[in-house]
Design a protein around this nucleic acid. Sequence first.
DNA 1: ATAGTTAGTTGATGAATGTCAAGACGTGTA
DNA 2: TACACGTCTTGACATTCATCAACTAACTAT
Lengths: 232, 232
Amino acid sequence: MRDTDKDIIRGLRLFADVEADKFDSLMMAAYAQRFPAHVDLIREGETADFLYIVLEGSVELFSTSHGRETSMAIVAPVSTFILAATIKDAPYLMAARTLEPSKLLLIPSSNVRTVFGDDPAFARAIVTELASCYRSVVKSMKNLKLRTAIERVGNYIIRLHDKSGKADIVELPFGKRNLASILGMTPENLSRAFGALQSHGIMMDGARIEILDRAALEAISKPNPLIDDPRS
Amino acid sequence: MRDTDKDIIRGLRLFADVEADKFDSLMMAAYAQRFPAHVDLIREGETADFLYIVLEGSVELFSTSHGRETSMAIVAPVSTFILAATIKDAPYLMAARTLEPSKLLLIPSSNVRTVFGDDPAFARAIVTELASCYRSVVKSMKNLKLRTAIERVGNYIIRLHDKSGKADIVELPFGKRNLASILGMTPENLSRAFGALQSHGIMMDGARIEILDRAALEAISKPNPLIDDPRS
DNA sequence: ATAGTTAGTTGATGAATGTCAAGACGTGTA
DNA sequence: TACACGTCTTGACATTCATCAACTAACTAT
Protein backbone atom coordinates (compact mmCIF):
# COMPACT_ATOMS: atom_id res chain seq x y z
CA MET A 1 0.00 0.00 0.00
CA ARG A 2 0.99 3.60 -0.58
CA ASP A 3 2.76 5.66 2.03
CA THR A 4 0.13 8.39 1.85
CA ASP A 5 -2.52 5.85 2.84
CA LYS A 6 -0.27 4.71 5.64
CA ASP A 7 -0.01 8.25 6.93
CA ILE A 8 -3.74 8.66 6.85
CA ILE A 9 -4.22 5.48 8.88
CA ARG A 10 -1.55 6.57 11.32
CA GLY A 11 -3.54 9.74 11.80
CA LEU A 12 -6.56 7.84 13.07
CA ARG A 13 -6.79 7.86 16.84
CA LEU A 14 -7.19 4.11 16.70
CA PHE A 15 -3.68 3.67 15.30
CA ALA A 16 -1.89 6.78 16.52
CA ASP A 17 -0.16 5.13 19.48
CA VAL A 18 0.54 1.67 18.09
CA GLU A 19 4.22 0.70 18.32
CA ALA A 20 6.06 1.23 15.05
CA ASP A 21 6.84 -2.41 14.31
CA LYS A 22 3.33 -3.54 15.24
CA PHE A 23 1.89 -0.87 13.00
CA ASP A 24 4.11 -1.96 10.14
CA SER A 25 3.07 -5.56 10.57
CA LEU A 26 -0.57 -4.49 10.32
CA MET A 27 0.09 -2.42 7.22
CA MET A 28 2.08 -5.22 5.60
CA ALA A 29 -0.87 -7.54 5.94
CA ALA A 30 -3.38 -4.93 4.84
CA TYR A 31 -4.32 -3.96 1.35
CA ALA A 32 -6.14 -0.98 -0.07
CA GLN A 33 -8.69 -1.59 -2.76
CA ARG A 34 -11.10 0.43 -4.89
CA PHE A 35 -14.68 -0.70 -5.29
CA PRO A 36 -17.40 0.55 -7.62
CA ALA A 37 -20.68 1.87 -6.25
CA HIS A 38 -23.32 -0.52 -4.94
CA VAL A 39 -21.01 -3.44 -4.33
CA ASP A 40 -21.71 -5.85 -1.50
CA LEU A 41 -18.70 -5.97 0.79
CA ILE A 42 -19.83 -8.24 3.60
CA ARG A 43 -22.95 -10.18 4.46
CA GLU A 44 -24.60 -10.57 7.84
CA GLY A 45 -23.64 -13.73 9.63
CA GLU A 46 -20.29 -14.22 7.96
CA THR A 47 -17.31 -14.39 10.25
CA ALA A 48 -15.22 -11.28 10.52
CA ASP A 49 -12.21 -11.88 8.29
CA PHE A 50 -11.22 -8.25 7.94
CA LEU A 51 -11.33 -4.95 9.70
CA TYR A 52 -12.40 -2.31 7.16
CA ILE A 53 -11.39 1.32 6.94
CA VAL A 54 -13.11 3.72 4.57
CA LEU A 55 -10.48 5.91 2.90
CA GLU A 56 -12.68 7.48 0.23
CA GLY A 57 -16.35 7.24 -0.72
CA SER A 58 -18.95 5.89 1.66
CA VAL A 59 -20.25 2.58 2.92
CA GLU A 60 -23.71 1.65 4.12
CA LEU A 61 -24.15 -0.75 7.01
CA PHE A 62 -27.54 -2.43 6.86
CA SER A 63 -29.46 -5.37 8.16
CA THR A 64 -32.07 -7.69 6.79
CA SER A 65 -34.58 -10.00 8.39
CA HIS A 66 -37.32 -11.97 6.72
CA GLY A 67 -37.74 -9.68 3.76
CA ARG A 68 -37.35 -6.37 5.59
CA GLU A 69 -34.23 -4.24 5.36
CA THR A 70 -32.95 -1.23 7.25
CA SER A 71 -29.90 0.99 7.18
CA MET A 72 -28.03 1.04 10.44
CA ALA A 73 -25.35 3.60 9.63
CA ILE A 74 -23.42 5.20 6.82
CA VAL A 75 -19.67 5.30 7.24
CA ALA A 76 -17.75 8.25 5.81
CA PRO A 77 -13.96 8.68 5.51
CA VAL A 78 -11.84 8.19 7.45
CA SER A 79 -13.20 5.62 9.84
CA THR A 80 -13.32 1.95 10.57
CA PHE A 81 -16.29 -0.33 10.63
CA ILE A 82 -17.20 -3.68 12.18
CA LEU A 83 -14.49 -3.38 14.78
CA ALA A 84 -16.56 -5.20 17.39
CA ALA A 85 -17.03 -8.33 15.27
CA THR A 86 -13.32 -8.34 14.43
CA ILE A 87 -12.27 -8.21 18.04
CA LYS A 88 -14.75 -10.79 19.24
CA ASP A 89 -14.11 -13.02 16.23
CA ALA A 90 -17.89 -13.18 15.95
CA PRO A 91 -20.26 -13.08 12.97
CA TYR A 92 -21.06 -9.69 11.48
CA LEU A 93 -24.38 -8.36 12.73
CA MET A 94 -24.66 -6.00 9.78
CA ALA A 95 -24.03 -6.27 6.07
CA ALA A 96 -22.07 -3.62 4.20
CA ARG A 97 -22.07 -2.21 0.68
CA THR A 98 -20.57 0.77 -1.06
CA LEU A 99 -22.89 3.69 -1.76
CA GLU A 100 -20.51 5.26 -4.26
CA PRO A 101 -17.13 4.36 -5.75
CA SER A 102 -14.96 3.90 -2.68
CA LYS A 103 -11.47 3.13 -1.58
CA LEU A 104 -11.18 0.82 1.40
CA LEU A 105 -8.40 -0.62 3.48
CA LEU A 106 -8.78 -4.22 4.58
CA ILE A 107 -6.76 -5.51 7.51
CA PRO A 108 -7.03 -9.24 8.26
CA SER A 109 -8.84 -9.73 11.56
CA SER A 110 -6.29 -12.19 12.84
CA ASN A 111 -3.55 -9.57 12.56
CA VAL A 112 -5.70 -7.05 14.36
CA ARG A 113 -6.35 -9.51 17.16
CA THR A 114 -2.66 -10.35 17.43
CA VAL A 115 -1.57 -6.75 17.80
CA PHE A 116 -4.49 -6.14 20.11
CA GLY A 117 -3.06 -8.84 22.39
CA ASP A 118 0.55 -7.62 22.16
CA ASP A 119 0.26 -3.86 22.24
CA PRO A 120 -1.42 -2.26 25.25
CA ALA A 121 -1.61 1.12 23.53
CA PHE A 122 -3.58 -0.41 20.70
CA ALA A 123 -5.87 -2.20 23.16
CA ARG A 124 -6.56 1.06 24.92
CA ALA A 125 -7.24 2.86 21.65
CA ILE A 126 -9.70 0.14 20.69
CA VAL A 127 -11.49 0.64 24.00
CA THR A 128 -11.95 4.32 23.30
CA GLU A 129 -13.11 3.61 19.78
CA LEU A 130 -15.58 0.94 20.89
CA ALA A 131 -16.92 3.11 23.67
CA SER A 132 -17.60 5.80 21.08
CA CYS A 133 -19.33 3.32 18.79
CA TYR A 134 -21.42 2.07 21.68
CA ARG A 135 -22.48 5.53 22.71
CA SER A 136 -23.31 6.40 19.15
CA VAL A 137 -25.68 3.43 18.81
CA VAL A 138 -27.29 4.27 22.14
CA LYS A 139 -27.94 7.75 20.85
CA SER A 140 -29.48 6.38 17.66
CA MET A 141 -31.71 4.17 19.74
CA LYS A 142 -32.86 7.08 21.88
CA ASN A 143 -33.50 9.02 18.70
CA LEU A 144 -35.73 6.22 17.44
CA LYS A 145 -37.59 5.48 20.64
CA LEU A 146 -38.12 8.97 22.00
CA ARG A 147 -38.96 10.96 18.88
CA THR A 148 -41.56 11.17 16.17
CA ALA A 149 -40.59 10.97 12.52
CA ILE A 150 -40.73 14.73 12.05
CA GLU A 151 -38.57 15.36 15.08
CA ARG A 152 -35.96 12.91 13.80
CA VAL A 153 -35.83 14.67 10.46
CA GLY A 154 -35.72 18.11 12.05
CA ASN A 155 -32.86 17.16 14.32
CA TYR A 156 -31.00 15.59 11.44
CA ILE A 157 -31.12 18.92 9.63
CA ILE A 158 -30.01 20.73 12.78
CA ARG A 159 -27.00 18.44 13.05
CA LEU A 160 -26.12 19.09 9.40
CA HIS A 161 -26.42 22.79 10.10
CA ASP A 162 -24.09 22.56 13.09
CA LYS A 163 -21.56 20.51 11.16
CA SER A 164 -21.55 23.04 8.34
CA GLY A 165 -20.58 25.79 10.77
CA LYS A 166 -24.12 27.13 10.55
CA ALA A 167 -24.01 28.00 6.89
CA ASP A 168 -27.44 29.03 5.61
CA ILE A 169 -27.56 26.24 3.07
CA VAL A 170 -26.73 22.61 3.74
CA GLU A 171 -26.74 19.64 1.43
CA LEU A 172 -27.86 16.10 2.16
CA PRO A 173 -24.75 13.90 2.06
CA PHE A 174 -26.59 10.95 0.49
CA GLY A 175 -29.88 9.98 -1.12
CA LYS A 176 -33.21 10.44 0.59
CA ARG A 177 -33.97 6.77 0.26
CA ASN A 178 -30.97 5.96 2.45
CA LEU A 179 -31.67 8.79 4.82
CA ALA A 180 -35.23 7.59 5.33
CA SER A 181 -34.03 4.14 6.26
CA ILE A 182 -31.40 5.51 8.64
CA LEU A 183 -34.07 7.60 10.33
CA GLY A 184 -36.43 4.64 10.58
CA MET A 185 -39.16 5.63 8.15
CA THR A 186 -40.24 5.12 4.55
CA PRO A 187 -39.06 7.42 1.75
CA GLU A 188 -42.65 8.62 1.29
CA ASN A 189 -42.82 9.63 4.91
CA LEU A 190 -39.50 11.43 4.75
CA SER A 191 -40.83 13.45 1.83
CA ARG A 192 -43.87 14.41 3.86
CA ALA A 193 -41.73 15.29 6.86
CA PHE A 194 -39.60 17.60 4.74
CA GLY A 195 -42.80 19.11 3.44
CA ALA A 196 -44.15 19.68 6.93
CA LEU A 197 -40.90 21.29 8.04
CA GLN A 198 -41.12 23.92 5.31
CA SER A 199 -43.51 25.81 7.55
CA HIS A 200 -41.01 25.53 10.38
CA GLY A 201 -37.97 27.40 9.24
CA ILE A 202 -36.54 25.53 6.25
CA MET A 203 -36.83 25.54 2.49
CA MET A 204 -36.03 22.46 0.43
CA ASP A 205 -34.77 22.29 -3.09
CA GLY A 206 -33.84 18.74 -3.97
CA ALA A 207 -30.93 17.79 -1.77
CA ARG A 208 -30.29 21.38 -0.74
CA ILE A 209 -31.86 22.77 2.39
CA GLU A 210 -31.92 26.40 3.30
CA ILE A 211 -32.21 27.13 7.00
CA LEU A 212 -34.34 30.26 7.24
CA ASP A 213 -35.31 30.21 10.89
CA ARG A 214 -33.19 28.05 13.12
CA ALA A 215 -35.26 28.90 16.20
CA ALA A 216 -38.47 27.69 14.56
CA LEU A 217 -36.73 24.52 13.45
CA GLU A 218 -35.53 23.88 16.99
CA ALA A 219 -38.96 24.61 18.41
CA ILE A 220 -40.52 21.75 16.48
CA SER A 221 -37.51 19.39 16.60
CA LYS A 222 -36.67 19.73 20.29
CA PRO A 223 -32.96 18.95 20.06
CA ASN A 224 -31.22 17.24 22.96
CA PRO A 225 -27.44 17.19 23.34
CA LEU A 226 -27.59 13.72 24.90
CA ILE A 227 -28.98 12.45 21.59
CA ASP A 228 -27.61 14.80 18.99
CA ASP A 229 -24.25 16.10 20.14
CA PRO A 230 -21.61 13.92 18.45
CA ARG A 231 -19.03 14.91 21.05
CA SER A 232 -20.95 14.01 24.20
CA MET B 1 -16.38 -4.77 51.44
CA ARG B 2 -16.86 -8.45 52.18
CA ASP B 3 -14.61 -11.14 50.77
CA THR B 4 -17.56 -13.00 49.29
CA ASP B 5 -18.40 -9.93 47.21
CA LYS B 6 -14.79 -9.70 46.19
CA ASP B 7 -14.85 -13.28 44.98
CA ILE B 8 -17.96 -12.64 42.97
CA ILE B 9 -16.37 -9.65 41.25
CA ARG B 10 -13.22 -11.63 40.59
CA GLY B 11 -15.42 -14.18 38.85
CA LEU B 12 -16.59 -11.64 36.27
CA ARG B 13 -14.73 -11.91 33.00
CA LEU B 14 -14.09 -8.18 33.20
CA PHE B 15 -11.94 -8.61 36.32
CA ALA B 16 -10.72 -12.17 36.02
CA ASP B 17 -7.28 -11.32 34.65
CA VAL B 18 -6.54 -8.08 36.47
CA GLU B 19 -3.23 -8.16 38.36
CA ALA B 20 -3.68 -8.89 42.05
CA ASP B 21 -2.47 -5.56 43.39
CA LYS B 22 -4.44 -3.59 40.81
CA PHE B 23 -7.52 -5.58 41.66
CA ASP B 24 -7.03 -4.90 45.34
CA SER B 25 -6.65 -1.19 44.72
CA LEU B 26 -9.95 -1.21 42.86
CA MET B 27 -11.67 -3.12 45.63
CA MET B 28 -10.23 -0.85 48.31
CA ALA B 29 -11.74 2.16 46.61
CA ALA B 30 -15.04 0.43 45.93
CA TYR B 31 -17.95 0.07 48.26
CA ALA B 32 -20.99 -2.16 48.23
CA GLN B 33 -24.31 -0.67 49.12
CA ARG B 34 -27.92 -1.78 49.41
CA PHE B 35 -30.67 0.32 47.87
CA PRO B 36 -34.45 0.08 48.24
CA ALA B 37 -36.67 -0.41 45.21
CA HIS B 38 -37.38 2.51 42.87
CA VAL B 39 -34.41 4.60 43.86
CA ASP B 40 -32.76 6.86 41.32
CA LEU B 41 -29.08 5.96 41.05
CA ILE B 42 -27.84 8.21 38.28
CA ARG B 43 -29.29 10.86 36.05
CA GLU B 44 -28.65 11.43 32.36
CA GLY B 45 -26.04 14.04 31.65
CA GLU B 46 -24.14 13.71 34.91
CA THR B 47 -20.49 12.87 34.61
CA ALA B 48 -19.58 9.29 35.28
CA ASP B 49 -18.25 9.21 38.83
CA PHE B 50 -18.65 5.49 39.36
CA LEU B 51 -18.68 2.22 37.55
CA TYR B 52 -21.63 0.21 38.85
CA ILE B 53 -21.95 -3.53 39.30
CA VAL B 54 -25.27 -5.18 40.13
CA LEU B 55 -24.71 -7.84 42.79
CA GLU B 56 -28.34 -8.52 43.69
CA GLY B 57 -31.69 -7.20 42.51
CA SER B 58 -32.08 -5.41 39.21
CA VAL B 59 -31.51 -1.98 37.72
CA GLU B 60 -33.34 -0.24 34.92
CA LEU B 61 -31.46 1.94 32.45
CA PHE B 62 -33.76 4.50 30.91
CA SER B 63 -33.76 7.74 29.00
CA THR B 64 -35.93 10.80 28.93
CA SER B 65 -36.41 13.58 26.43
CA HIS B 66 -38.95 16.37 26.50
CA GLY B 67 -41.53 14.54 28.54
CA ARG B 68 -41.14 11.11 26.97
CA GLU B 69 -39.38 8.22 28.67
CA THR B 70 -38.17 4.82 27.53
CA SER B 71 -36.41 1.84 29.06
CA MET B 72 -33.17 1.02 27.33
CA ALA B 73 -32.20 -2.11 29.26
CA ILE B 74 -32.62 -3.95 32.51
CA VAL B 75 -29.45 -5.11 34.19
CA ALA B 76 -29.53 -8.35 36.18
CA PRO B 77 -26.80 -9.75 38.48
CA VAL B 78 -23.93 -10.05 38.07
CA SER B 79 -23.01 -7.41 35.55
CA THR B 80 -21.68 -3.92 35.16
CA PHE B 81 -23.38 -0.93 33.67
CA ILE B 82 -22.34 2.41 32.16
CA LEU B 83 -18.85 1.15 31.44
CA ALA B 84 -18.55 3.25 28.30
CA ALA B 85 -19.23 6.55 30.08
CA THR B 86 -16.75 5.60 32.80
CA ILE B 87 -13.97 4.89 30.35
CA LYS B 88 -14.57 7.95 28.22
CA ASP B 89 -15.10 10.17 31.25
CA ALA B 90 -18.19 11.37 29.44
CA PRO B 91 -21.72 12.19 30.63
CA TYR B 92 -24.11 9.28 31.17
CA LEU B 93 -26.41 8.82 28.20
CA MET B 94 -28.89 6.88 30.32
CA ALA B 95 -30.35 7.28 33.77
CA ALA B 96 -30.55 4.35 36.18
CA ARG B 97 -32.85 3.30 38.98
CA THR B 98 -33.44 0.17 41.01
CA LEU B 99 -36.46 -1.91 40.08
CA GLU B 100 -36.37 -3.86 43.35
CA PRO B 101 -34.26 -3.82 46.50
CA SER B 102 -30.75 -4.23 45.17
CA LYS B 103 -27.16 -4.53 46.22
CA LEU B 104 -24.68 -2.66 44.09
CA LEU B 105 -20.95 -2.22 43.99
CA LEU B 106 -19.65 1.26 43.14
CA ILE B 107 -16.10 1.69 41.90
CA PRO B 108 -14.88 5.26 41.43
CA SER B 109 -14.40 5.96 37.74
CA SER B 110 -10.98 7.52 38.26
CA ASN B 111 -9.69 4.27 39.79
CA VAL B 112 -11.12 2.29 36.89
CA ARG B 113 -9.43 4.59 34.41
CA THR B 114 -6.13 4.35 36.26
CA VAL B 115 -6.06 0.58 36.25
CA PHE B 116 -7.27 0.61 32.68
CA GLY B 117 -4.17 2.61 31.79
CA ASP B 118 -1.77 0.45 33.82
CA ASP B 119 -2.99 -3.08 33.30
CA PRO B 120 -3.12 -4.39 29.74
CA ALA B 121 -5.12 -7.43 30.81
CA PHE B 122 -7.82 -5.18 32.21
CA ALA B 123 -7.79 -3.05 29.06
CA ARG B 124 -8.27 -6.15 26.95
CA ALA B 125 -11.09 -7.39 29.15
CA ILE B 126 -12.83 -4.05 28.82
CA VAL B 127 -12.57 -4.31 25.06
CA THR B 128 -14.33 -7.64 25.08
CA GLU B 129 -16.99 -6.34 27.44
CA LEU B 130 -17.59 -3.21 25.41
CA ALA B 131 -17.73 -5.17 22.18
CA SER B 132 -20.44 -7.32 23.74
CA CYS B 133 -22.37 -4.27 24.90
CA TYR B 134 -22.10 -2.74 21.47
CA ARG B 135 -23.33 -5.85 19.74
CA SER B 136 -26.17 -6.13 22.18
CA VAL B 137 -27.42 -2.61 21.42
CA VAL B 138 -27.11 -3.25 17.71
CA LYS B 139 -29.30 -6.30 18.14
CA SER B 140 -31.88 -4.29 20.08
CA MET B 141 -31.90 -1.75 17.33
CA LYS B 142 -32.44 -4.39 14.67
CA ASN B 143 -35.23 -5.79 16.82
CA LEU B 144 -36.91 -2.39 16.87
CA LYS B 145 -36.42 -1.44 13.26
CA LEU B 146 -37.07 -4.74 11.55
CA ARG B 147 -39.98 -6.15 13.53
CA THR B 148 -43.59 -5.41 14.36
CA ALA B 149 -44.76 -5.18 17.96
CA ILE B 150 -46.17 -8.72 17.97
CA GLU B 151 -42.97 -10.16 16.54
CA ARG B 152 -40.93 -8.44 19.24
CA VAL B 153 -43.13 -9.88 21.97
CA GLY B 154 -43.13 -13.34 20.41
CA ASN B 155 -39.36 -13.39 20.14
CA TYR B 156 -39.00 -12.16 23.67
CA ILE B 157 -41.00 -15.18 24.85
CA ILE B 158 -38.92 -17.47 22.67
CA ARG B 159 -35.75 -16.13 24.28
CA LEU B 160 -37.20 -16.69 27.74
CA HIS B 161 -38.08 -20.20 26.67
CA ASP B 162 -34.55 -20.87 25.46
CA LYS B 163 -33.01 -19.44 28.61
CA SER B 164 -35.22 -21.65 30.78
CA GLY B 165 -33.90 -24.75 29.05
CA LYS B 166 -37.19 -25.05 27.18
CA ALA B 167 -39.34 -25.61 30.25
CA ASP B 168 -43.03 -25.54 29.36
CA ILE B 169 -43.73 -22.63 31.66
CA VAL B 170 -41.72 -19.43 31.85
CA GLU B 171 -42.16 -16.39 34.03
CA LEU B 172 -41.67 -12.74 33.11
CA PRO B 173 -38.66 -11.50 35.06
CA PHE B 174 -40.18 -8.04 35.62
CA GLY B 175 -43.38 -6.08 35.26
CA LYS B 176 -45.24 -5.75 31.99
CA ARG B 177 -45.03 -1.99 32.16
CA ASN B 178 -41.24 -2.23 32.02
CA LEU B 179 -41.28 -4.93 29.42
CA ALA B 180 -43.50 -2.84 27.17
CA SER B 181 -41.07 0.05 27.34
CA ILE B 182 -38.07 -2.18 26.65
CA LEU B 183 -39.85 -3.57 23.60
CA GLY B 184 -40.78 -0.11 22.38
CA MET B 185 -44.53 -0.13 22.83
CA THR B 186 -47.22 0.97 25.30
CA PRO B 187 -48.45 -1.33 28.09
CA GLU B 188 -51.86 -1.45 26.43
CA ASN B 189 -50.31 -2.68 23.24
CA LEU B 190 -48.25 -5.28 25.02
CA SER B 191 -51.45 -6.62 26.55
CA ARG B 192 -53.03 -6.87 23.14
CA ALA B 193 -49.93 -8.53 21.72
CA PHE B 194 -50.03 -11.17 24.45
CA GLY B 195 -53.71 -11.62 23.69
CA ALA B 196 -53.03 -12.08 19.99
CA LEU B 197 -50.26 -14.61 20.69
CA GLN B 198 -52.66 -16.85 22.63
CA SER B 199 -53.87 -18.18 19.29
CA HIS B 200 -50.25 -18.84 18.29
CA GLY B 201 -48.97 -21.37 20.75
CA ILE B 202 -48.94 -19.72 24.18
CA MET B 203 -51.23 -19.36 27.18
CA MET B 204 -50.87 -16.45 29.57
CA ASP B 205 -51.73 -16.36 33.24
CA GLY B 206 -50.50 -13.12 34.77
CA ALA B 207 -46.73 -13.19 34.59
CA ARG B 208 -46.64 -16.91 33.77
CA ILE B 209 -46.56 -18.04 30.18
CA GLU B 210 -47.12 -21.59 29.08
CA ILE B 211 -45.55 -22.51 25.77
CA LEU B 212 -47.95 -24.96 24.15
CA ASP B 213 -46.74 -24.93 20.57
CA ARG B 214 -43.27 -23.63 20.03
CA ALA B 215 -43.47 -24.12 16.27
CA ALA B 216 -46.58 -21.94 16.02
CA LEU B 217 -44.92 -19.28 18.15
CA GLU B 218 -41.87 -19.31 15.89
CA ALA B 219 -44.04 -19.17 12.78
CA ILE B 220 -45.53 -15.84 13.81
CA SER B 221 -42.42 -14.44 15.51
CA LYS B 222 -39.86 -15.30 12.84
CA PRO B 223 -36.82 -15.55 15.13
CA ASN B 224 -33.39 -14.65 13.77
CA PRO B 225 -30.18 -15.68 15.52
CA LEU B 226 -28.47 -12.46 14.44
CA ILE B 227 -31.01 -10.58 16.55
CA ASP B 228 -32.00 -13.00 19.28
CA ASP B 229 -29.06 -15.25 20.03
CA PRO B 230 -27.29 -13.76 23.06
CA ARG B 231 -24.09 -15.63 22.20
CA SER B 232 -23.67 -14.52 18.59
C1' DA C 1 -63.35 -4.29 56.74
C1' DT C 2 -62.64 0.00 54.00
C1' DA C 3 -60.64 2.95 51.24
C1' DG C 4 -56.64 3.96 48.50
C1' DT C 5 -53.14 2.51 45.34
C1' DT C 6 -51.05 0.20 41.60
C1' DA C 7 -50.71 -2.98 37.66
C1' DG C 8 -52.98 -4.82 34.22
C1' DT C 9 -56.84 -5.34 30.82
C1' DT C 10 -60.27 -3.98 27.42
C1' DG C 11 -62.81 -1.13 24.17
C1' DA C 12 -63.45 3.04 21.45
C1' DT C 13 -61.17 6.38 19.03
C1' DG C 14 -57.62 9.03 16.68
C1' DA C 15 -53.00 10.01 15.18
C1' DA C 16 -48.90 8.45 13.03
C1' DT C 17 -46.98 5.79 9.77
C1' DG C 18 -46.79 2.34 6.01
C1' DT C 19 -48.57 0.78 1.44
C1' DC C 20 -49.97 1.21 -3.13
C1' DA C 21 -50.41 3.60 -7.34
C1' DA C 22 -49.56 7.32 -10.35
C1' DG C 23 -46.95 10.85 -12.07
C1' DA C 24 -42.93 14.34 -12.34
C1' DC C 25 -38.28 14.96 -13.02
C1' DG C 26 -33.64 14.17 -14.14
C1' DT C 27 -29.98 11.19 -16.12
C1' DG C 28 -27.73 8.15 -18.98
C1' DT C 29 -27.96 5.55 -23.26
C1' DA C 30 -29.27 3.74 -27.75
C1' DT D 1 -34.26 12.59 -30.01
C1' DA D 2 -36.47 9.26 -27.64
C1' DC D 3 -36.45 5.78 -24.47
C1' DA D 4 -35.67 3.42 -20.24
C1' DC D 5 -34.41 3.85 -15.62
C1' DG D 6 -34.09 5.42 -11.05
C1' DT D 7 -35.36 8.85 -7.57
C1' DC D 8 -38.45 11.59 -5.55
C1' DT D 9 -43.09 13.36 -4.74
C1' DT D 10 -48.02 13.27 -4.05
C1' DG D 11 -52.58 11.46 -3.06
C1' DA D 12 -55.75 7.87 -1.45
C1' DC D 13 -56.07 4.33 1.53
C1' DA D 14 -54.92 0.67 5.08
C1' DT D 15 -52.63 -0.64 9.09
C1' DT D 16 -50.35 -0.16 13.18
C1' DC D 17 -49.97 1.84 17.21
C1' DA D 18 -50.91 5.34 20.88
C1' DT D 19 -54.27 7.65 23.65
C1' DC D 20 -58.07 8.06 26.63
C1' DA D 21 -61.32 6.20 29.65
C1' DA D 22 -63.46 2.69 32.19
C1' DC D 23 -62.97 -1.29 34.66
C1' DT D 24 -60.99 -5.40 37.37
C1' DA D 25 -57.95 -7.58 40.49
C1' DA D 26 -54.51 -7.61 43.83
C1' DC D 27 -52.14 -5.47 47.40
C1' DT D 28 -51.40 -1.69 51.39
C1' DA D 29 -52.39 1.06 54.93
C1' DT D 30 -55.43 2.75 58.20
